[in-house]
Design a protein around this nucleic acid. Structure first.
Lengths: 211, 211
DNA sequence: AAAGTTACGGGGATAAACCCCCTTTTTTCA
DNA sequence: TGAAAAAAGGGGGTTTATCCCCGTAACTTT
């Protein structure tokens, strides 16, 4: 009998999915939690029943899926993490995989697939759907011609998405306006931009700045 | 015995929630569909069992929740719609309510609340959680001090979210640069902006321009 | 018909943004 | 540890953007 934990802030869903999991052979639900913090605290408590596998949501308040998975990989490497989310965005999926998730299910998968995924992760160590595999490959290809912005430049870009003038940004970053000027030119050159408006849109598109 | 239909593109969730609903007294699940189109087609078919209430997701491919609800209000006003979504954004909630939804549940509600909501909608005609009520009120309040931008100004704003200079925008709109200047000033004044960067961010926040 | 509103256009000034070429300081690492 | 690279700072000039105050034509309102 494998022990399953559910971590999802959408109570209705965890309750409902718990019902599904209980129908499967060889699986029992030992824990249902609202977020990563709750789950980690639970594991550190005395009466914790350590699960074999966790069905983990990604978008959660307090402590999100990525952070929680990273923590589990470090402190409880024997607990497998299977991500279960509506989030289809490449970067998020990849972050979860990098954090140590053994698989990533979108919430539009069928009941039978969930059972299969649970079994696969426990027996073979991982389970990836075609969709996720494609996503990962496509992302790797996209990374080829990607520019790398330096930390300081990223900081500058965030401030540039503001009504501040460059002079004000310089004061904020304790730099000379001329240095900011340098960042601006370097960033424009790297990204092929013509003006600050273009920079703002690039930053928002690439989530450097979230409006 | 009330008849319930489920419409949600996340199969795992509909299946799981169907399990929950079947546990309730007086409820049976007569239909599970992936999107609004599928459901409407089903209703128009011969062997359709007309449900008393539909649990409807909002974000769906092909035919979304708002569109479907509007259609049902017109052609099947005896079928109650209870929205069930993760979407917390005010405008979306309001759209669903306006379209004729009798209630709006976020997916983090508990099993007992779902049962209560189903019963309330069927007996009293509606069910609103505190959260949704607050949301609606807050939105009404927000609408008070809302500025109205003219058509021409909106067009200008969209072009301003571009690497074009004002002169180029003027050419594009067959106007003098000075007229554009006028739009700019009027828009800045109305929205309390300091510069073009602020305008771009406002436009994206308010979905005038989608990056 | 006088007064107001809306849309369009303009002059001229100042600040901010943009561009190219260059020096000094700091860091990196072979 | 010394050369190379990266980061920070700068001079000086052009182009945009911003701001304020003004004028005209057309169409409403009263």
């Amino acid at each position: 009998m494998y022990k399953v934990a559910l971590v999802d802030d959408h109570t209705l869903l965890s309750e409902a999915i718990a019902g599904l999991v209980r129908q499967f052979d060889n699986f029992e639900v030992v824990y249902i939690g609202l977020n990563g913090k709750e789950f980690v605290d639970y594991l550190n408590s005395d009466q914790a029943v350590k699960p074999d596998i966790v069905l983990m949501d990604v978008n959660m308040p307090v402590m999100g899926g990525v952070e929680t998975t990273t923590h589990l990989s470090k402190h409880h490497p024997d607990i497998k993490v299977l991500a279960l989310s509506i989030e289809e965005e490449e970067s998020v999926v990849l972050q979860m995989i990098r954090a140590g998730a053994k698989g990533y299910l979108l919430k539009d998968t069928r009941k039978a697939i969930l059972e299969q995924a649970l079994n696969e992760v426990l027996t073979h160590g991982f389970y990836y759907t075609n969709t996720v595999e494609k996503l990962v490959k496509r992302n790797e290809a996209a990374h080829e011609d990607e520019v790398t912005l330096k930390e300081r430049e990223l900081e500058f870009i965030k401030h540039a998405c503001t009504e501040m003038t460059y002079k004000e940004i310089a004061e904020l970053m304790f730099l000379s306006p001329k240095t900011i000027e340098g960042y601006r030119e370097s960033v424009f050159q790297k990204l092929g931009l013509k003006n600050r408006t273009g920079l703002v849109i690039y930053a928002i598109k690439n989530k450097i700045f979230v409006p």
